[in-house]
Design a protein around this nucleic acid. Structure first.
Lengths: 199, 199
DNA sequence: CTTTTGATGTGACTCGGTAACGTCACTATA
DNA sequence: TATAGTGACGTTACCGAGTCACATCAAAAG
């Protein structure tokens, strides 16, 4: 038996979710989270750069995932196939308990601007990584940017739909459906570009 | 003569830029900024919700600007014309000294992650506002989202190009050029969708 | 058996941000 | 003109996030 309980980061995450849900983010101090996980404030900040980061641990994996997905796609892939490869790899980068954790996490993020800001920043990091990977394969920076925005949007909305749905279909499938819908919207956009719209 | 020097917010902004540039963001305390503007820390936080917000004051105007631009566009506007109207109105919402301030501000943002996070959040707020305005005119949420991303990208890159260029052309023109380029990229994207690309 | 390692604890500190309370020129109204 | 607000500001005290130097002690390494 080791000197300390294992998985300090995981314990801190669970403690944070529990206390934030009970008392709210602002009303919960870092010391309380640490104590609830059987640790001290100093140790908490040795594991996480700041209080918010407890809830966003492991996002680096997602950035790596999306990039490798694009870079390792078949040589003769169309732009859309590259996006699909990146987003599929992104979905596959999540841990198995994603759904359980996310259903606890999402309500928290909705209540606290401070957490939304961090979530937005993480999303931007993924978008930026996807954009660069796509650009390296496509050569065109603007196309890469448009596709990156589209891919990440599909990912986040497929994610949201998957979390809130009662029937737990496959995560990747939910995202891929969304991606298909966006592809169609994109096509309509350029087809319709000469026509006018009612207000 | 009034009791206090006027334009406390402006003085705080100038003080913050000056001190951040000299010593760096982290090495500058809120009290130092306040003192440099002839005020106290408490008064600083009466004007701004937090330290970062000193540099991002007045962004609410931009959100209102982009929304009104879309909503007040002619009744028979195409999707792209709606985006153009929104982005043009966004550009027009800036104060006249934008260029001078931005050239001091941009290097600061580049050095401090904390500030980039706030900048990203502000950008997301503009994107969200544009998306909702577009959706209310277009009816299609996905098209609105794709167009909002595209418009905001063009805006930020036109902005960056305008700031860094020596010949100060019109801001709105720089952004509009970028928008045109994105429109072309979008069209190529759907035209090319059946073709393959070299890796 | 001795040394080293590394995750943790302790205590003290700085700084961001809040809140209660006081000050005083300006303004409005009687 | 007297008097009662009003509002921007200062003073003081406080809490919590985050940092740092230093100590601890089981386990691994030698």
């Amino acid at each position: 038996m080791s000197r300390w309980e294992p998985d300090a980061r995981g314990r801190l995450l669970r403690a944070a979710i529990e206390l934030f849900t009970e008392r709210g983010y602002d009303a919960t101090t870092a010391a309380q989270i640490a104590a609830h996980a059987g640790l001290t404030k100093t140790t908490l900040f040795r594991h996480f750069a700041d209080k918010r980061e407890i809830l966003f641990q492991g996002q680096d994996v997602l950035v790596e995932g999306v990039v490798s997905g694009v870079l390792e796609a078949p040589a003769l892939s169309s732009p859309m196939e590259l996006v699909r490869a990146g987003i599929a790899s992104l979905c596959a980068s999540h841990s198995a308990d994603l759904r359980d954790v996310a259903r606890l996490l999402d309500p928290l993020l909705a209540t606290t601007p401070e957490l939304q800001e961090r979530a937005t920043f993480k999303r931007a990091a993924i978008t930026e990584a996807l954009q660069q990977a796509l650009e390296s394969r496509l050569g065109d920076a603007r196309q890469a940017r448009l596709l990156a925005d589209m891919g990440v949007r599909a990912y986040y909305e497929g994610y949201a739909a998957w979390i809130s749905s009662d029937a737990p279909a496959a995560f990747a499938a939910s995202v891929d459906d969304e991606l298909t819908a966006y592809e169609a919207a994109l096509r309509e956009l350029t087809d319709d570009r000469a026509s006018v719209h009612p207000s």
